[in-house]
Simulated assay, not measured.
Amino acid sequence: MADMVDEKIKNYRTAPFDARFPNTNQTRNCFQNYLDFHRCNKALSAKGQDVSPCQWYQRVYKSLCPMGWVSKWDEQIESGSFPGRI
């Protein structure tokens, strides 16, 4: 399983189609992948497992989200004022 994930991450070019977000506006897709990345890291770290599968979400949100948003969200997480549930 980890080999398949590593292979997909290696061959990653841009965010694939996600049926949950069929419209042109990808703002929700960006935010959801950001949340999924942090949730995945939190869940796997709590279990003491390898967090490398979470890199998929990170690559997707980095290709979709403006870096200004990401830096703002990172600052909000650090300060404890982030609006999403992680």
Score class of each variant (00 low, 15 high):
M1C: 07
D3S: 14
M4A: 15
M4Y: 13
V5D: 10
V5H: 09
D6A: 15
D6N: 15
E7L: 11
E7N: 11
E7F: 13
E7G: 03
K8Y: 10
I9Y: 06
I9V: 14
K10A: 14
K10E: 13
Y12P: 01
R13T: 11
T14L: 02
T14W: 02
T14H: 12
T14P: 00
A15P: 01
A15Y: 04
P16K: 07
F17N: 06
F17Y: 13
D18A: 06
D18E: 11
A19F: 11
A19L: 06
A19I: 02
A19H: 09
A19R: 10
A19N: 06
R20P: 01
R20K: 12
R20E: 10
F21Q: 04
P22W: 03
P22D: 04
N23R: 07
N23I: 00
N23Q: 07
T24N: 09
N25P: 00
N25E: 12
R28N: 13
R28T: 03
R28F: 07
N29V: 00
N29I: 00
N29A: 13
N29F: 12
C30E: 04
C30K: 05
C30D: 04
F31N: 07
F31K: 09
Q32K: 07
Q32T: 02
Q32F: 10
Y34R: 02
Y34K: 00
L35G: 01
D36S: 13
H38W: 14
H38N: 13
C40D: 03
C40V: 01
N41H: 05
N41L: 08
N41F: 01
N41Q: 06
N41W: 02
K42S: 10
K42Q: 12
A43G: 01
A43P: 00
L44M: 10
S45A: 10
S45D: 06
S45T: 09
S45W: 02
K47P: 04
G48R: 05
Q49Y: 11
D50K: 11
D50T: 05
D50P: 02
V51I: 13
V51L: 08
V51Q: 14
P53E: 05
P53M: 04
C54V: 01
Q55S: 09
Q55N: 12
W56E: 03
W56S: 07
W56L: 05
Y57D: 09
Y57L: 01
Y57M: 03
Q58M: 09
Q58V: 00
Q58D: 07
R59Q: 15
V60P: 06
Y61A: 08
Y61S: 06
Y61T: 04
K62L: 12
S63W: 00
L64N: 04
C65K: 07
P66G: 10
P66F: 07
P66E: 08
M67C: 02
G68K: 12
W69Q: 08
W69C: 02
W69G: 04
V70Q: 14
S71T: 08
S71Q: 14
K72D: 15
K72W: 14
K72I: 03
W73P: 01
W73M: 13
D74H: 14
D74P: 01
E75P: 00
Q76C: 09
Q76N: 12
E78T: 12
E78K: 15
S79N: 15
S79V: 06
G80Q: 11
G80A: 12
G80F: 13
F82D: 15
F82T: 05
P83V: 05
P83F: 11
P83K: 11
G84H: 09
G84M: 13
G84S: 08
G84N: 08
G84C: 05
R85I: 05
R85W: 10
I86Q: 15
